[in-house]
Design a binder for these strands. Structure first.
Length: 813
DNA sequence: GTAAACGGTATTTTT
DNA sequence: TACCGTTTAC
């Protein structure tokens, strides 16, 4: 054996449980590993690879397919510890297909330098296809058509078949667009994400010799997260495991959360039928979580019908109860979670990286972000706006794409007038028509601009000028990426353009992003001294997901969606907004299978937690602008109260204390726990006396005002009505309340009744105060009831600070 | 042709 | 609220 360092057989299998060792030592023949959360699955997979190598399997005969780059990186790192330097192929499905397609490009009608359209690219392409197909978007949206076509591709349905099938279904429109869209992609020498799988699956199906070749070459295929495979992926894996059916899949039906993307749970549920001689191993012991957390998760998931029943257990010591927490609203949720994190850190047994906050939708991270930032807590958002999606980055990448693939029409349209060079929509439209008529790429049309009669002389000049710039850039295509990018930025005067047009916002600095992209290029050059091509760089960029951006080396609180959380673990976990219409999501409630998927989503969230976990919901939450009452998620009723602590919302006397706690300048320094009291509203904030007029809605609740006191309510078998009813809440039983229920008046209107709505105050607004007279708002911070303004009055009074919800202010216009 | 201003509308999750 | 497409004013 070529590597002396590799551990002995015993050390590979020692420290493994029987079940784990069973899986690790199974080499030939199909293998199904049902792996519960935290059951050491990655350990098994990596040890199995090491074991196979040890037994003489050649590294290039093994391919391990994952869904995320992060999972692949993790696997690579850990295999490398066990068997250093072995060239086992590990990577995502999409990357695998992309690489194979490079080799066999011509067999599916592509060129080897084909481009991968990202979502926004395919969106533009889709719009163009819809227009070309002559379809009015009055009754459908491009998104719906996209999604129908995407689903078709995931199920390996060709345009022809879709047209035949769509007799009665509402997919007829999509079926008409589909062939047009595919043709345009092919003409642009491009594929979308689905095509990577679709083309490759069809390639295998239609070319037996290619199939046999790959089957023989990759004798041992492993698939991670098998429960998330769709039909295309299933077909690919199957096709490569006919002559050498040494297919090992790992997964957990209870963690299947990608049904909406075409994942078919039957792939894993029926695996044993597909491969009769399969060896099945169940990993049910959990090494990650406390028994309490596991019990809650297990009880929840037992409500699903479509699953393979598992008996999850752990030998970990007992931990704290899972907390079920109610908040008044999303802002309080955000603030108090941030406070809780601060408190736990101050208590000294946690640091930022220990915490993760999960939510159903990206939009929900905003208030959390705000609250964390206010307290100076370091955090990272794992989704937000992906770096590669930002305008300035996309602009430059589009240039690179066009340089690499002159047929990339989407890139051309993005770039031809960026920076602006006098080529407007009309001109672009005419180029497009000419291109369509002659079945040529738009760049080709641009080269032949003088043949296009409809173009004005001026337009022809402008277009030619662009082509000249393009050709100049193209000459640099083989330079290092860094050189190419720098040259590009310089030649197009891109930075000047950004500075001229860019509106620099607080957390958005376009020029810095340009620099960051250049850094990424430098890094790529460094990592690929030999094989570094523009092609490879663009492929790499296209296939990294936002979830891969997660850095556990950063000592930061992590904010992400539940989907992004899969495969990760954190000591302390918050799942926020466990509310009806959100989790389960409104659009998933009608269908049982989708509802079960939502339940799995929460299951995934809870099982990420190692020692501490809180689920929360609010009584009301603002949804795109206005505030609406909330019904807690039905899933909360399914949780066992024995392992939980239920906490009702703290009454909103919180408006007057906890808000303005002082936090350390830097979290390196840990301070004593702040002892906020009702009277202590913190420095710099002035509250008007008695904010409650006769018509006020709020009254102080019965809770103690010391925020460090935690209320532990007795457990209950179901969520008591009190959580969303008025019985013990600070909302008075008044006409105002019934209006909430009837939806006639929003809570924010109630809060602001008889006052100027908070969102009308702007920096620079002139306001009148009964005592101080007129002043100008110099700054605004905070949200909702906590929105605070600094107001500059006359010389005598100077600057004063007010909580807008309570101050007796009037807007002067 | 460009840019700002307006108004309508959608709103999940992501390789 | 935020984005997008459209209109409007230069």
């Amino acid at each position: 054996m070529g590597w002396g360092i590799l551990c002995s057989m015993e050390s590979i299998t020692k420290n493994l449980t029987d079940a784990q060792a069973d899986a690790v030592t199974h080499i030939d023949g199909p293998l199904l590993i049902i792996a519960g959360p935290g059951s050491g699955k990655t350990r098994v997979v990596t040890h199995r690879i090491a074991h196979m190598l040890h037994q003489g399997v050649r590294p290039y005969q093994i391919a391990a397919l994952t869904f995320t780059n992060k999972a692949a990186d993790e696997m690579r790192m850990r295999v490398n510890l066990l068997a250093p330097g072995q060239p086992v192929w590990m990577g995502t499905f999409h990357r695998f297909c992309a690489q194979q397609l490079r080799r066999y490009a011509s067999m599916v009608g592509l060129n080897e330098n084909y481009s991968i359209y990202d979502m926004s690219d395919s969106k533009s392409a889709m719009k163009r296809a819809i227009a070309a197909a002559g379809i009015a978007t009055s009754h459908t949206s491009p998104e719906q058509i996209s999604s129908a076509i995407s689903k078709a591709k995931n199920r390996l349905i060709t345009p022809e078949i879709m047209q035949q099938q769509s007799g009665r279904a509402g997919d007829t429109v999509a079926a008409r667009v589909y062939p047009v869209y595919q043709q345009q992609l092919l003409l642009a020498n491009a594929v979308d994400f689905d095509d990577l799988l679709y083309h490759f699956a069809r390639l295998l199906r239609e070319n037996p010799e290619v199939r046999a070749e790959l089957d023989a070459k990759l004798k041992y295929i492993m698939v991670d997260e098998y429960q998330d495979t769709n039909l295309a992926q299933y077909a690919i894996v199957r096709a490569m495991s006919v002559d050498h059916p040494n297919l090992a899949v790992t997964g957990d039906p209870d963690q299947s959360i990608y049904g909406w993307r075409g994942a078919d749970l039957n792939n894993i549920l029926d695996f044993e039928k597909d491969y009769p001689n399969v060896k099945t191993v169940r990993l049910e012991q959990n090494y990650r979580s406390t028994p309490n957390i596991l019990a809650v998760a297990d009880q929840l998931i037992r409500h699903n019908r479509r699953r393979k029943a598992k008996e999850l257990f752990t030998e970990n010591p007992d931990g704290e109860n899972v907390i079920l927490r109610q908040y008044e609203d999303g802002y309080q949720e955000a603030d108090e979670i941030a406070d809780e994190i601060a408190a736990q850190m101050i208590a000294g047994n946690a640091e930022p990286r220990d915490f993760a906050i999960f939510c159903r939708m990206n939009a929900l991270t905003r208030s959390l972000e705000h609250a964390l930032r206010n307290r100076g807590l370091p955090y990272q958002i794992v989704n937000g706006q992906e770096f590669y999606q930002r305008k300035e980055v996309k602009d430059l990448l589009s240039y690179l794409h066009l340089i690499n693939n002159p047929a990339h029409d989407v890139a051309l349209q993005r770039v031809i007038n960026t920076p602006t060079r006098g080529i407007g929509a009309t001109t672009i439209g005419r180029l497009q028509s000419f291109a369509d008529a002659n079945r040529i790429p738009m760049l080709e049309a641009a080269r032949r601009a003088n043949e296009i009669d409809s173009l004005s002389k001026r337009a022809v000049t402008m277009v030619s000028r662009f082509v000249t710039i393009y050709d100049r850039l193209r000459k640099k295509a083989t330079a290092s990426l860094e050189d190419l990018l720098r040259y590009l930025v310089e030649e197009t005067h891109y930075v000047a353009y950004l500075e001229k047009t860019g509106i620099e916002k607080e957390d958005h600095n376009p020029v810095a992003n340009v620099d960051e992209l250049i850094s990424a290029a430098v890094e790529f050059d460094r990592m690929h001294p030999d094989d570094g091509s523009l092609d490879a760089f663009l492929e790499q960029v296209a296939l990294v997901a936002d979830t891969d951006a997660f850095e556990d080396s950063n000592n930061r609180v992590t904010l992400m969606t539940l989907h992004a959380a899969k495969g990760l673990e954190f000591p302390r976990v918050f799942v926020i907004a466990v509310e009806d219409d959100l989790l389960p999501h409104r659009r998933s409630k009608e269908d049982d299978q989708q509802l079960e998927e939502e339940r799995r989503l929460l299951f995934v969230g809870i099982t990420r937690a190692k020692q501490w976990c809180q689920l929360s919901y609010a009584k009301r939450r603002s949804v795109r602008g206005d505030i609406r009452p909330v019904i807690p998620s039905m899933f909360l009723n399914e949780l066992p109260r024995a392992d939980m602590t239920v906490q009702e919302a703290r009454a909103d006397n919180d408006f007057f204390d906890a808000v303005d706690q002082e936090y350390p300048e830097s979290w390196d320094i840990i301070q004593e726990e702040p002892d906020g009291t009702a009277a202590d509203s913190g420095p710099g904030v002035q509250l008007d006396a008695d904010p409650f007029g006769p018509d006020e809605v709020f009254e102080p609740g019965p809770e103690p005002s010391n925020p460090s006191t935690v209320d532990r309510l007795p457990s209950a078998s179901v969520i008591p009505d009190v959580y969303f009813d008025d019985a013990e809440t600070p909302v008075k039983k008044s006409k105002a309340k019934s209006k909430i229920k009837a939806g006639l008046q929003t809570a924010s209107e109630m809060l602001d009744s008889g006052r100027t709505p908070l969102n009308l105050y702007r920096e620079g607004s002139t306001v009148r105060h009964p005592e101080y007279g007129e002043g100008t708002i110099t700054s605004l911070v905070g949200r909702g009831p906590k929105k605070t303004a600094k107001i500059q009055f006359g010389e005598e009074t100077g600057e004063q600070t007010f909580r807008l919800a309570f101050a007796k202010l009037e807007l002067v216009d």
